[in-house]
């Protein structure tokens, strides 16, 4: 099957600092890929490059076989096909939950109000927050805010969802509710790239795990069972042994 996203020898430098070095892998339709690795290994950078929030310094990122466009308008069109969920939710604090979810369809897709409304209602229902539609983001718990952020991204009906440590800023009690929304999304066949430190989630939900190491190097990749139970690389084992496996 043709990959939805393909990374070909992607490099990213910040000045003389190398954040990504020759990263190559691909993501097929419906696949859930978890990116793991130590802090500073370039996982967030890779997601930001995928979404065109950063320009890559070398190599190529292909979306449905075509390299990401270099123009602003082209990049906007690409972003409309990818949803992104941030560690700090980044809900728009001046708009209600409902308005946050409708914002993309209304302003970007120029959908009519009734249709946007219907879509937002359905999505809030899906993430279990139909009753919070009228609330302001500040009145929600972290887990609830993150579920709204997922609904907001889904409202664009993206082909791919990118998650950058979606549960790292959450209290332990609310992590589960976000992960179960993500799991349901995966079960429905959404293509997902998830940067996470939740190894239990990666093991249960991921089709493939990609391990990064310091210096922005892809260390190894494979199905979760292989990565977690029989990693090929000594350094993967090292990294995993230092993690907390609770949860």
């Amino acid at each position: 099957m043709n990959p939805v996203i393909e990374y070909r020898a992607v490099c990213k430098n910040y000045g003389s600092f190398v954040a990504l070095r020759d990263v190559s892998f691909s993501v097929s339709k419906g696949e859930v890929v978890c990116l793991i690795g130590p802090s500073g290994s370039g996982k967030s950078t890779l997601l930001r490059c995928t979404n065109g929030l950063e320009q890559i310094s070398g190599g190529a990122i292909l979306l449905d076989g075509a390299p990401l466009p270099q123009t602003r308008a082209g990049m906007r069109a690409v972003r409309q096909r990818m949803g992104m969920v941030f560690q700090n939710f980044e809900l728009f604090p001046h708009r209600s939950v409902f308005a946050n979810v409708m914002m993309g369809p209304l302003t970007v897709l120029r959908m009519d109000h009734a249709a946007a409304r219907a879509r937002a209602e359905a999505l809030l229902d899906k993430v279990g927050l139909a009753d919070k539609a009228a609330s302001m983001p500040a009145a929600l718990s972290g887990g609830q805010q993150q579920r709204v952020a997922i609904a907001r991204a889904l409202a664009m009906e993206p082909a791919v969802m990118l998650f950058d440590e979606p549960t790292s800023a959450l209290d332990p009690e609310t992590i589960g509710e976000v992960l179960s929304v993500m799991k349901r999304l995966a079960d429905e066949g959404m293509t997902m790239i998830v940067v996470t430190h939740e190894m239990t989630f990666a093991r249960r939900v991921a089709d493939r795990v990609v391990v990064f190491e310091r210096g922005g190097v892809l260390l190894e990749q494979g199905p979760p069972r292989q990565i977690f139970d029989a990693p090929l690389m000594e350094r993967t084992r090292d990294f995993l042994s230092h993690l907390d496996w609770s949860g």
Partner: peptide, 25 residues
């Protein structure tokens, strides 16, 4: 900056993100 990234990630144009996300806040 995260707010701007979130607006960009939704596919907003520069004027849209200025008028709808940055200026109101």
């Amino acid at each position: 900056p995260g707010q701007i990234r979130a607006a960009l990630a939704l596919g907003m144009s520069q004027p849209q993100l200025v008028m709808q996300v940055v200026l109101p806040q």
